[in-house]
Design a protein around this nucleic acid. Structure first.
Lengths: 359, 359
DNA sequence: TACTTATAGTTAAGCGCTTAACGGTGCAAT
DNA sequence: ATTGCACCGTTAAGCGCTTAACTATAAGTA
């Protein structure tokens, strides 16, 4: 609670001198430096960050904006893993992380809007799971240092970090096709709920078309990310005759739900039906059967996002210093590969299952 | 980027008036109010929070301090669930959450120390998994609004939110005993790594003693929270002859690891060996066999912690207003019950397994 | 000797906001 | 006519820090 002034008084110097000592500015004698430092120690002085922020125009806080329409936000391991990556880099750089979870579509979220423009944040990382939300727009308008994890077609995806959803989806679909599956089902989500959904669906489609399979008549149900919704969606898929021999799920949690439903039907995974997911959440490996899925490099993506943000912040700062007008350009999108993780929830289709089921 | 001053200029009033309008202070005519509001809208004015924080002495940011020695912090669903609870309440109250993850024992973490004392935070919630870390001490010394999730024997556990680890552990141990198990093994962690560890162990002990079983000769291995470490610990437990018919694990992840090891030995859970966990992480329900474990009310605990914090903040504020000296007292600890969740990873011991193993 | 220049420290303005204290109005009550 | 007071608005003093601009001294240079 001691202030700079009190330190100055005690050390018998001006506040400017104390400030200089604290910021390691040169031209302070060893003797006064020592005196100041002693006063600081004696008073247990800690600079007031709000004051510093006001006068320096920097807060050393960066905001991480979560997607708003997720069911249980932090329950998604992918998101928390990304957060962890971000957090690591920010801490290294001496920045703090403020988490922003808009509870309304971003455009309506007063909380978010204010924060973004309040000068409280030195930068913003948005985790954008939705297609082109206005969240994408605002920071850019402000010339605000900002990076998005996700897609932003509007601005040519500048300053974004992405996962190669298309390639990952294509690969896992091709894998199932390679195993011999011809009748598959898909559990997806509303494309308005997840920007990546469309990419993954395109990936699936591409694999199907490569194998000369008609993608448009593949049965497809929609869930809402959760295990429960995966169960429900699988329920509908299994009601078909013949039922699919493999189910492609847009995320792991729905895959787990789908597997529960398959079990409930008295069938085995993968012997009777193969089920694959997407994301490779931590428990995917320990689930039985261990999930065949697609891994995204979430932690690295988070780290890279933070690094990119700091590059932007640094660049802005030097621009300002030399009075250059801001380069309105940005970084090209960084696309992280996603990789097929083969475990044991997928296998070749049962030999004559189709025939036998048709009886 | 517009400032109060600019708004005032445009609305042709003083900055004080603008400020009053913005804070809904009475005694402003409808007409000027409208004029000010229009100017605000036209300029897209958003108050600068750093300035507001400085002049009001409040930042509307509360810090959540994570335990420092966790392997993969955010990977622990318990922690993220708590965070979610905290976040919910804070958002409701118009507060933001800053996450603080000391990367060193708290006492050495300059980052943490400064933050706590920098006036940047209106309050602190520490998630304390360790026994009486200095983290517990500092905020209290400062009379800083602060709540801990965990145990703090030093201060009579004032202002803490706890889970009834003892009762939960006792209950699950008693459950296994009730099923008929007599030879059990325990997978715990270092007590210096988790304050609750001692409580849970006491709970186990109590159940054993109630059943007149000698707790001290129960084989006990130590892991480090992770699935992998559970596997390793189970490995040692299974090396014994006779091996235990049930394994009590201090958390679910280690239980999952232990189950993997049991499978690797060609044994079935729960037919051959029962394995139970603690925490009831989300995937516990979907794991096969679904884990019998102990649920903690993590989200509610987080919410309650935040509520308690706001009560303290409010109380401080009114104290200051009427100049009362701070009541150094605090709230009594709130203990959340933990409840046994019976699923399918535990069953009675195999009929004659004891005899047959002893051959 | 006079003029730089490096060093050491101070002054004071200012970051953008809040708020106590202080005028002025009108108008009802004395 | 005087007082009281509810109402509307302004002035100005901070909040605690940073930093440009300045003063002052000592040492180096032509």
């Amino acid at each position: 609670m001691a202030t700079l002034k009190e330190v100055a008084l005690r050390a018998q110097v001006s506040t400017a001198t104390v400030s200089k000592v604290l910021s390691n500015t040169p031209y302070v004698s060893e003797e006064t430096r020592a005196r100041v430092l002693r006063a600081v120690a004696e008073l247990g002085y800690v600079p007031n960050l709000a004051a510093r922020a006001l006068s320096k125009g920097r807060t050393y806080i960066i905001g991480v904006v979560f997607p708003y329409n997720y069911d249980h936000l932090f329950a998604d391991p992918l998101i928390t893993t990304i957060l962890e990556g971000i957090e690591t880099v920010c801490t290294e750089q001496g920045y703090n992380v403020l988490i922003v979870t808009p509870r309304a579509p971003v455009i309506e979220s007063a909380q978010y809007q204010r924060l973004a423009q309040s000068g409280y944040l030195d930068g913003l990382i948005t985790i954008e799971t939705l297609p082109d939300t206005p969240a994408s727009t605002i920071p850019e308008q402000l010339g605000y240092p900002w990076v998005a994890l996700g897609y932003r077609s509007a601005l040519g995806n500048l300053n974004t970090i992405q996962s190669d959803d298309f390639a990952g989806a294509k690969e896992i679909a091709a894998y199932l096709i390679g195993l011999g599956h011809r009748h598959m089902g898909i559990i997806t989500v509303e494309e308005t709920d997840l920007a990546a959904a469309a990419r993954r669906m395109s990936g699936y489609r591409s694999a199907f078309e490569n194998a000369a399979l008609n993608f448009d008549q593949v049965p497809c149900e929609r869930g809402s990310f959760s295990v429960e919704s995966g169960y429900q969606a699988a329920d509908k898929l299994l009601a078909r005759t013949p039922h699919p021999t493999a189910i492609l799920c847009l995320n792991d949690r729905m895959a787990i739900g789908a597997i529960q439903r398959v079990w409930a039907a008295g069938l085995q995974v993968p012997q009777d039906i193969s089920v694959v997911g997407f994301d490779d959440i931590p428990s995917a490996a320990y689930f039985a059967p261990a999930l065949t899925t697609v891994r995204q490099h979430a932690e690295e993506m988070g780290e890279r996002a933070a690094q990119m943000l700091f590059e932007i912040i640094g660049q802005r700062a030097s621009d300002n210093r030399r009075g250059t007008t801001q380069t309105p350009s940005g970084f090209k999108p960084i696309v992280f590969p996603s990789e097929l993780v083969i475990r044991s929830s997928a296998a070749p289709p049962p030999g004559r299952s189709l025939e036998s089921l048709r009886r």
